[in-house]
Amino acid sequence: MPNEAPAIKAENLTRRFGKFIAVDHVSFEVRRGEVFGFLGANGAGKTTAIRMLCGLLHPSGGEAWVSGLSINQDSRKIRQRIGYMSQKFSLYDDLLVEENLDFFAGAYNLSVADANKRRDEILKRFSLEEVRRRLTKSLPLGWKQRLALGSAMLHQPEVLFLDEPTGGVDPIMRRNFWETIHGLAAQGTTIFVTTHYMDEAEYCHRISIMNYGKIIAMGEPSKLKAEFGLPTIQDVFVHLIKGA
């Protein structure tokens, strides 16, 4: 049963840059429909790990599977099944909202009929209909973020990678964003997300905390808090990183 298989599975995933080990024998599993928080200090190796999982970077060792496909062998196929959105919101500022969606639909090889249908669905779902003819750069940050998420969702990916998706976005927008994320997860999309906002970590079903390339803690936020006897994930995080 494909549904039984984990959406993401990493086994001893390792990446070296010269002598520097950015990701050091990292293993974890993410279930289908799970919101998995991938936390760590700046420079802990999160971005390197995400790039490997997205098939953008070859691992130096170990193996990982994303929706059942090996990152070592099927990195091309993986890209059709995943969505990726980063802090920088890789949108074209000088295109209209709908032109951005059309462009990404083309990039994911959607047929014209599918592209139009998906575009209209995305515009509706992410409440972008009223701004479809607006220049992307004229949108407030929170709206750009929704558009970036919509663009990453055009091809109905099974796994969505979000690399600090809420940087610089205000608290209300962040909340709305997280509810959207949970809505997607409830429908079966797997969410793999990094963030520096520890309050956001509380929204995740499970989190892992990474330091110097290694995962030093993993589990449900409530259980981690109970384990360390600390009131918030932020406290747990600071405790673990400082103690390391």
């Binding site: 200090a41 700046n42 600090e164 520096h196 520890m198 990183i241 400082k242």
Partner: peptide, 9 residues
């Protein structure tokens, strides 16, 4: 903004 909690602290 964009800094991890330990460094922020």
């Amino acid at each position: 903004t964009g800094v991890d909690p330990v460094s922020r602290g």
